[in-house]
Structure formats: structure tokens, C-alpha cells
């Protein structure tokens, strides 16, 4: 039986979670929210994490009813992500490991999302669409690696949505993507936008610069709601299309959507229609698990720890760039 604590802080979410054999004992989170029209910058985000991490840690321990000596392994996000915020969590995780005299394990953030999704939805061997503010990847498991079949060749889909929310000066609370989703529900008029699929890869930067350049003219003819609606319809159609391609390519009949953009209900709905037409199954989670959290790091770390993965203290560094397919998946035998 493995009890693991996970520290996550690769972007503007600070999360600490505790799991015992896949059972979630605590899932605590704080989000750094910037004013409308602004994104989050590394230094300010790191300061936010510094100011909150002790409180969140105490909360997680209290909520779980676990004592530090009961913990088997301390896990933290090694990467990918923003350097400064990652560093804050890594330092606290290392300190805890030393104080409590426990082993420590760095976890790949993307693997955390995938394993969390598999745990919650019980999907067995799905094609994974991982969509967030920093990543857009189509992933499938094959021979001990989560292999990337398609991805964005420039900015992430969440980044595209967030930056468009900034153009419209939408609120960043609770998240820019959520506010775009709500606005899109009121949109009626569809605007044709650039549609950019290259094989199983996608590109979003062209759509964003098109909207940014023309925003003043567009607002004369379309409401902000129409534009949110058109943007969502276009970028999600691209994502569903490459997911379907990857499924056909891998002969897979399950899809799992993970990452912050994954809690968008319109994306889930479109993916559901595609799956129904193919006779496939769709798995998705809600905002508690889709959005970055500490539980996913604890769970992925626990799986690796149980299957024998260990990390020397001198290797408990962070890295801003850490590809999903760099990790050897020791805990799966299929």
C-alpha cells in the first residue's frame, strides 16, 4: 500500500494532493488569477505559490488525516512548465522529504494528467487528447511509452483561447477558458476562421493573429459572443478531427480527454458525437481533475514508485522542457 503526496505548480495553479492506492484523500488547490487583459508571468506566479504553499500543505494534511510519517513517497512536478513556479514546489517537496526522511520522486506533468484520467474514468487503453494552456497533444500508449502521435506545431489550444479572452478583455476568474465557454453558448452567427490541420498536427497561431488583427472590424459585424462561439467551433473541430485520425491510425476505440481545456463541455460534446459515429467510447473528467492538481502528481508518482522507479536526491531538479515520450512507463505491462 503506497501513500503518496504530490506537489504541482507548473503554471498558475498550485495544488497539493494525497492518495492511498488510487483513493483520493486530499485535493487542495489555489489559482493565481490576473486582472482582465493580462496573462500570468513566471515571477509573480512563483511569488503566489510561495505565499500559499504552506497553507495548502497544512490543508491537505488536515483534510486527509494522514501524518507525515505515514507517507511513503513525496512526489513533485519535475516539468514541463514555467521554471520559477516549478522551482517553488520542488524546493518545498525536497524540504519535506528531508524533514520527514522519505524518498522523493519527480513526475512528468503530462503523465500525471494521463494517469489521473485513467484512474478516474477507468479507461483501459485510450487514445488521449491532452489539451491545456501549455500543451496540445494526441497520445497513445505503445511499448512502455506514451507516444505523441500529433501535437500543436506552435501555441497550445488553451493559450489560443486565453489570449483571445485577453483581446476581448474577458475576466480571468475562474479561468479565461471558462468565460469563453459561457460566452460561446450565447453566440449565434458563425464566422469562418482559418482551419489548420497538418496530418495529425494542428496549428493555432494563425487563427489567433487573424482574430487579433481584425478584431475592430469583426466587432462591427459580430458580437463578442459570436466570436467566442466561432473560435470554439473551429479549434475544437480541429482537435476532434486529429483525434479521430489518431484513433483510425492506432485502431483504438476509446478516447480520454485530459488537461484544463478538457473540462469544456462543448469539446466533450463534439468528441462524444464523433465517438458515437465510430462506435467508440469517450472518457472525460470534471474540473476537479482536469485542471492541474496535486493528486495527479501523487498518483502518477505512486504508480512509478510501486513499480520500482527511484530517484537520487541529487537528481530532484526541475526542467522546463520534458516531453511525454521521455518517460519510461514502468507500471504498465501491456
Amino acid at each position: 500500500m503506497v501513500i503518496a503526496i504530490g506537489f504541482e505548480g507548473s503554471a498558475n495553479k498550485l495544488g497539493i494532493g494525497i492518495v492511498r492506492n488510487g483513493e483520493i484523500l486530499a485535493n487542495c488547490r489555489r489559482t493565481y488569477i490576473t486582472p482582465p487583459g493580462e496573462g500570468f508571468l513566471p515571477r509573480e506566479t512563483a511569488e503566489h505559490h510561495q505565499q500559499n504553499i504552506h497553507k495548502v500543505l497544512q490543508e491537505a494534511l488536515d483534510e486527509s488525516g494522514i501524518l507525515p510519517q505515514d507517507i511513503d513517497v513525496v512526489c513533485y512536478t519535475k516539468g514541463p512548465g514555467m521554471g520559477a513556479p516549478l522551482m517553488v514546489c520542488a524546493i518545498v517537496a525536497r524540504t519535506c522529504a528531508k524533514l520527514w526522511n522519505k524518498p522523493i520522486l519527480g513526475v512528468n506533468h503530462c503523465i500525471g494528467h494521463i494517469e489521473m484520467g485513467r484512474l478516474i474514468t477507468k479507461a483501459n487503453n485510450p487514445t488521449v487528447l491532452y489539451v491545456s494552456g501549455g500543451n496540445t497533444q494526441i497520445i497513445a500508449y505503445s511499448r512502455k511509452r506514451y507516444r505523441i502521435f500529433g501535437e500543436t506545431i506552435d501555441i497550445a489550444v488553451g493559450n489560443c483561447l486565453d489570449r483571445f479572452a485577453r483581446v476581448l478583455k474577458l475576466s480571468n476568474a475562474p479561468s479565461p477558458g471558462y468565460n469563453i465557454e459561457q460566452a460561446a453558448k450565447k453566440g449565434k452567427k458563425y464566422l469562418h476562421l482559418p482551419y489548420c490541420v497538418k496530418g495529425m498536427d494542428v496549428s493555432f497561431s494563425g487563427i489567433l493573429s487573424y482574430m487579433e488583427d481584425k478584431i475592430e472590424d469583426l466587432l462591427k459585424e459580430y458580437t463578442p459572443e459570436d466570436l467566442c462561439y466561432s473560435l470554439q467551433e473551429t479549434v475544437f473541430a480541429m482537435l476532434v478531427e486529429i483525434t479521430e485520425r489518431a484513433m483510425a491510425h492506432c485502431s483504438s476505440d476509446e478516447v480520454l480527454i485530459v488537461g484544463g481545456v478538457g473540462c469544456n463541455e462543448r469539446l466533450q460534446e463534439m468528441m462524444g458525437v464523433m465517438c458515437a459515429e465510430r462506435g467508440s467510447k469517450i472518457f472525460a473528467t470534471d474540473e476537479r481533475f482536469c485542471i492541474d492538481n496535486g493528486v495527479m502528481i501523487a498518483h502518477a508518482g505512486a504508480l512509478a514508485f510501486e513499480s520500482g522507479t527511484r530517484m537520487d536526491f541529487k537528481d530532484t531538479t526541475i526542467t522546463q522542457r520534458f516531453r511525454t515520450d521521455d518517460v519510461l512507463v514502468t507500471w504498465r505491462d501491456d
Binding site: S10, P80, G81, M82, S132, I153, A156, N159, R321, R323
Partner: peptide, 13 residues
């Protein structure tokens, strides 16, 4: 150049 862009891409979680 496109390749390098690809490697740079996995930045923010």
C-alpha cells in the same frame, strides 16, 4: 527550424 520549434513547444503545463 520547424523541428526546433517542436522541441521548444512543451513549455507550460
Amino acid at each position: 527550424e520547424v523541428r526546433a520549434r517542436g522541441r521548444k513547444r512543451t513549455m507550460v503545463g
